[in-house]
Amino acid sequence: MAIRKKNRKKQQLEQRARKLVVHASPKSIVSEQFRTLRTNINFSVPAGDLKTILFTSASPGEGKSTVSANMAMLFAQDGQKVLLVDGDMRKPTVHYTFHLSNTQGLSNVLTRQETPETVIRETEFSPNLHVMTSGPIPPNPAELLGSETMHQFMDYISSQYELVIFDAPPVLSVTDAQILANKCDGTVFVINTGETEKDNANKAKELLDASKSRILGAVLNNFKLGKDHYYYHYYGSGE
């Protein structure tokens, strides 16, 4: 029994490490691509104009939660005080990535059961990175995200953190992402290369445009690099 528990814990740690690749494998090609994304985001808008960033996708399973978690980690490693918020109150995953309980979170704050201070957690990975899980799944996520309480919550966290990153539901599944995109300073659209249909990606972009969101760019997830990229990484890995 003890061996099974030990193996299960090891598997959980390995799964978390795979998701947080910038922490587990900081010199890998994937981590370097995340750093490139961080640089592009920093250059996309004037300094000080980007306090809240939304990560979303057209459909489920495109990797937006993994991308948002790794980007939150990178910005925290860069010295910024960062808050990662699980804005997906329908199928939340952030608590799995950071191995946190999800008994209290965003939904509790928006229903005024808790204050942000009581549900924001520190992480074991970086003193600069804090996490707010989604909390219990409510019956009316879209209404909560569009509420005055949400507006007040956005004002509060923007005053407490240098950068707030939201992991939002897919655009084509529910209206939640459009509501959040309208409230955030910028939106990053994650596309699973070879899986996302072009029509779906275009439709999702149209919906984001309709919500008057500021699209910073798109991330091509699972994109296969050429051999020259692998050679460059190998050549420079020892420096």
Rank of each mutant, 00 (worst) to 15 (best):
Ala2Thr: 14
Arg4Leu: 14
Arg4Ser: 13
Lys5Cys: 08
Lys6Asn: 12
Asn7Ala: 15
Gln12Tyr: 10
Leu13Phe: 06
Arg16Ile: 11
Arg16Lys: 09
Arg18Trp: 09
Val21Phe: 03
Ala24Trp: 01
Ser25Tyr: 15
Lys27Glu: 11
Lys27Thr: 13
Ser28His: 03
Val30Leu: 12
Gln33Pro: 06
Phe34Val: 11
Arg35Asp: 00
Thr36Ser: 12
Thr39Trp: 07
Phe43Pro: 04
Ala47Thr: 15
Ala47Gly: 12
Gly48Ser: 03
Asp49Asn: 11
Leu50Ser: 05
Leu50Ile: 00
Ile53Lys: 06
Ile53Ala: 04
Ile53Asp: 05
Ile53Gly: 07
Leu54Met: 15
Phe55Ile: 05
Ser57Val: 09
Ala58Gly: 09
Ser59Asp: 14
Glu62Gln: 07
Glu62Ala: 02
Gly63Asn: 01
Ser65Gly: 00
Asn70Pro: 04
Asn70Ser: 10
Met71Trp: 05
Met71Ala: 06
Met73His: 03
Leu74His: 08
Phe75Trp: 07
Asp78Val: 02
Gln80Cys: 08
Lys81Phe: 06
Val85Tyr: 07
Val85Gln: 07
Asp86Arg: 08
Asp88His: 06
Asp88Cys: 01
Arg90Gln: 11
Lys91Tyr: 11
Pro92His: 08
Thr93Pro: 10
His95Ile: 10
Tyr96His: 14
Thr97Arg: 08
Leu100Lys: 04
Leu100His: 02
Leu100Asp: 05
Thr103Ala: 12
Gln104Gly: 11
Asn108Lys: 02
Asn108Ala: 06
Val109Ala: 03
Arg112Pro: 05
Gln113Arg: 12
Glu114Asp: 01
Thr115Phe: 09
Pro116Glu: 02
Pro116Trp: 07
Pro116Ile: 05
Thr118Leu: 10
Arg121Asp: 04
Glu122Asp: 12
Phe125Glu: 07
Leu129Trp: 05
His130Cys: 04
His130Lys: 11
Thr133Ser: 08
Pro136Ala: 10
Ala142Arg: 00
Gly146Tyr: 06
Ser147Thr: 11
Glu148Asn: 12
Thr149Pro: 01
Thr149Val: 07
Met150Gln: 02
His151Lys: 15
Tyr156His: 12
Ser158Leu: 08
Ser159Met: 07
Tyr161Glu: 00
Ile165His: 08
Phe166Glu: 05
Asp167Pro: 03
Ala168Trp: 04
Pro170Thr: 09
Val171Cys: 09
Val171Asp: 02
Leu172Trp: 00
Val174Lys: 00
Ala177Glu: 02
Ile179Pro: 04
Leu180Asn: 09
Asn182Phe: 05
Cys184Asn: 03
Asp185His: 10
Asp185Met: 03
Asp185Pro: 04
Phe189Thr: 01
Ile191Trp: 02
Asn192Cys: 09
Asn192Tyr: 03
Thr193Cys: 09
Thr193Met: 11
Glu197Val: 15
Glu197Lys: 15
Glu197Phe: 10
Lys198Thr: 15
Lys198Gln: 14
Asp199Asn: 15
Ala201Tyr: 08
Lys203Asp: 13
Lys205Leu: 10
Lys205Gly: 04
Leu207His: 06
Leu208Ile: 03
Leu208Thr: 00
Leu208Lys: 01
Asp209Met: 14
Ser211Asn: 00
Ser211Ala: 15
Arg214His: 15
Ala218Met: 10
Leu220His: 12
Leu220Lys: 10
Leu220Gln: 12
Leu220Tyr: 14
Asn221Tyr: 08
Phe223Tyr: 13
Leu225Met: 12
Lys227His: 14
His229Asn: 15
Tyr230Arg: 14
Tyr232Lys: 09
His233Val: 11
His233Gly: 06
Tyr235Met: 13
Gly236Cys: 13
Gly238Asp: 14
Gly238Tyr: 15
